[in-house]
Amino acid sequence: MTRRLGSGRLVIATHNAGKLKEIGLLLDPYGVECISAGSLGLPEPAETGTTFVQNALIKARAAAEGAGIVSLADDSGLSVDALDGRPGVYTADWAERQWFEGDPGRDWFMAMGKVEGMLQAKGADASRACAFHCVLAIAWPDGEYAVYEGRAPGTLTWPPRGTMGFGYDPVFVPEGYGQTFAELDPEEKHRISHRADAFARLVAEQFA
């Protein structure tokens, strides 16, 4: 049987306040107090894995070892069937600007355009099937771990539509819907998202 979290403190392996809040709200009903790796001054480890599972575990293990208590990390991204699963673990990297482009932040329109350009280069008959993936990894300081994978299948559309999402949301139409993630009400999006799927699996095993 998988080791259980129980109530108490949990380090979320992130330096992003928004992600800490989102995960904290999801775990609050189970008596879990979430603190971020950033608030503890822990460094962000290099994500050298080639899969979502590997990168989630790298982050979770680094935070657990650094804080000395159990940690939770996530890794997520978009995989496109016709592009052999790309961008995959490089989903965010495809949106990174180079130093000579000025703004050092992420340009998601550029990233969406790169995906669309690669699809168009494959011809009008290229499959537009894709999926968002999320992996949640729990790591204990003694080395034990648990992994939960979530998936939201869909198709890509062009041009981008909607203003309520982020990342690749404006070009992702979830299976069974006619709107993109960026057009859906945020509550509906979160209900059917890849992260919601992964959290449902985590809760079923850890708190049921």
Rank of each mutant, 00 (worst) to 15 (best):
M118I: 01
A126E: 09
A131G: 08
W99E: 15
W108I: 01
G113S: 10
F109Q: 14
W94Q: 12
Y145F: 11
A95V: 05
A92L: 04
F132I: 03
Q120I: 07
W140R: 02
A92F: 10
E144S: 08
I138S: 05
T91D: 08
L83N: 07
A124E: 15
A95R: 03
M118D: 13
H133S: 10
W99P: 15
Q120R: 15
D107S: 08
G123K: 12
L136N: 01
V135Y: 02
P104G: 08
G105Q: 07
P104M: 05
P141S: 09
Q98H: 15
L119Q: 09
D142H: 09
K114F: 07
R97E: 02
V89Q: 02
Y145Q: 14
D107V: 02
A137G: 09
Q120F: 12
G113L: 09
R97Q: 11
D103M: 03
Y145M: 11
R128G: 04
A124H: 14
W108H: 06
G143V: 00
K122N: 11
V89S: 03
E96V: 11
D93F: 13
C130H: 05
P141T: 03
G117S: 08
L119H: 04
G113D: 14
M110C: 11
D142S: 09
A137K: 00
L83S: 04
R128W: 08
E144W: 06
I138E: 00
D142G: 05
L119I: 06
C130R: 01
F100H: 15
T91I: 09
E116H: 15
Y145R: 13
W108A: 00
L136A: 10
A126T: 06
G113N: 10
A131Y: 07
K122A: 12
P141E: 01
G102M: 03
R86F: 07
R86D: 06
F109H: 12
W108D: 05
P141D: 02
P104I: 05
I138G: 00
G123H: 11
R97Y: 07
G105R: 14
G113M: 01
M118L: 14
G85D: 02
E96F: 04
G143C: 08
H133G: 04
H133C: 11
A124M: 03
P87E: 03
R106P: 00
A131V: 06
V115E: 05
L119S: 06
R97V: 03
Q98L: 13
M118H: 15
D93P: 03
R97A: 07
A129E: 13
G102S: 09
A111I: 01
M112R: 10
Q98K: 14
W108M: 07
G105F: 07
F100T: 13
Y90F: 13
K122E: 10
P104W: 10
A121V: 10
W140Y: 04
C134V: 00
A121T: 05
K114C: 05
